[in-house]
Nucleic acid binder design. Structure first.
Lengths: 235, 235
DNA sequence: AGCCGCGATATTGTCTACAATCTTAGAACC
DNA sequence: GGTTCTAAGATTGTAGACAATATCGCGGCT
């Protein structure tokens, strides 16, 4: 019953296990394809052929087409006119670019949060900070990575800055693949947790400028780490 | 022969003169619609009905649909599921948000430019700076506004930062309408030109941090001006 | 008179078929 | 043997028709 691996011609590997999804009944093809991409079931640069996707998700080609258009808008797929769509590959250089942009935008968000922090929110951040420290202490990198994302998301939400959130969401979606690269390094986590603590502390102190600086310091450190890792891999 | 004003129900006004374009032969419907929007021929919040657009541009509804999807990706139109598309209206608050985000991203670009400035580029910027000053001196606000845009574009290009350029292009497209609001005020130009001079001087000095600060100062000033103008209009 | 449900209309979402375009393989030719 | 033209195949782009959904006005009920 295995529903057709989607075009293996260009890509080195095909989607991992079975099809990206099957039980899904009748509508959110966009979400299904997006999930498949961010989960890595479609490799970077893999061609996404409308007919194949149509078959795989049992939707019409028109539906798949709109989905691809939307995903292109999110920067997840690349559309070559008359040549088709493929999973957009983010090079390390681009990943660094994304981090550089994030410095400004996440800095802004953190500053906004620090400015308008309520007491409940403060308590929440304090808890988050302690949980992060604990998870690193125990060496639970998966949990730490989860808390990490939670912090990002929460900062974005509480900034109440729709434009910034939007930009960040888009950038984040594109770089999931590289994020993963660092999060699995215990040594990296030890440094990272300190930086995150600094960010949270600055927010708790309701000091916007300090928060911005802390975010910048953190992201610069991530950039550095990414450079190192890839330099080592290149050997 | 007047090719159907596109749905006037929701919008207070209909497209200005005739149709947004007619001679256009056979393909770039997306560009035509985008132009119509940024040129203000379709009012903010105006509904964009696929059938009407299809007739107006003599293209199939499928084509129009693709165009709308793309424009939605650029943030120019809003798509309400099952309810249709309309020209996205940018409120003053959103315009300010956009400017806030631009602080970080344009600051980054300016810094990059300052870092890698060649001598020819330096000469170009110096010329641009002098032209700007001259145009303000002569009270030629149209020319000043043009040079203004030219500066922005050039900084983006020379930053060689694809991600930042992308983000800025998107944000810029959305806020053209508000930009216009300030550019027609002589008093504003007098202040603005000083700030732009500061930016260029920092770039010429090849001082990234100074460039970033100058950009920030400028955009903060724009935000302030925008607040003032709208406060005055609200009276 | 006011509120609720029902039917007509307008508009988008989906599907199938066809046309245009690009890619690839093969044969003819130099 | 290599190169170029040609034709077949694969894939996207466009078109028109149908189905699903929302919007709005009318009539009935309380």
């Amino acid at each position: 019953m295995a529903p057709a691996a989607v075009n293996e011609a260009t890509a080195a590997v095909s989607p991992a296990g079975g099809a990206p999804s099957e039980g899904g009944a009748h509508a959110p093809v966009t979400d299904q394809i997006r999930d498949a991409i961010v989960r890595g079931e479609y490799a970077p640069n893999q061609r996404l052929i409308e007919a194949d996707l149509s078959a795989a998700f049992s939707a019409s080609r028109a539906t798949v087409r709109t989905a691809l258009l939307e995903l292109a808008g999110e920067g997840l797929v690349e559309r070559l006119p008359n040549k088709g769509s493929r999973v957009r590959a983010i090079s390390v250089d681009e990943a660094i670019e994304i981090l550089e942009v994030r410095i400004g935008v996440e800095g802004l968000c953190a500053a906004k949060v620090a400015e308008h922090l309520t007491d409940e929110q403060a308590a929440e951040f304090a808890r988050l900070r302690d949980d992060m420290a604990a998870s690193v202490e125990e060496g639970d990198l998966v949990e730490y990575s989860r808390l990490n994302r939670a912090l990002d998301v929460r900062v974005r939400e509480l900034s109440h800055h729709a434009t910034a959130s939007d930009v960040l969401a888009r950038l984040h979606a594109q770089s999931v693949r590289h994020q993963f690269r660092l999060s699995s390094r215990p040594a990296r986590a030890k440094v990272s947790v300190l930086e995150h603590t600094a960010i949270i502390d600055a927010i708790l102190a309701r000091d916007p400028e300090a928060a911005e600086r802390a975010v910048r310091a953190h992201l610069l450190s991530v950039i550095e780490a990414l450079r190192e890792v890839t330099a080592r891999e290149a050997v």
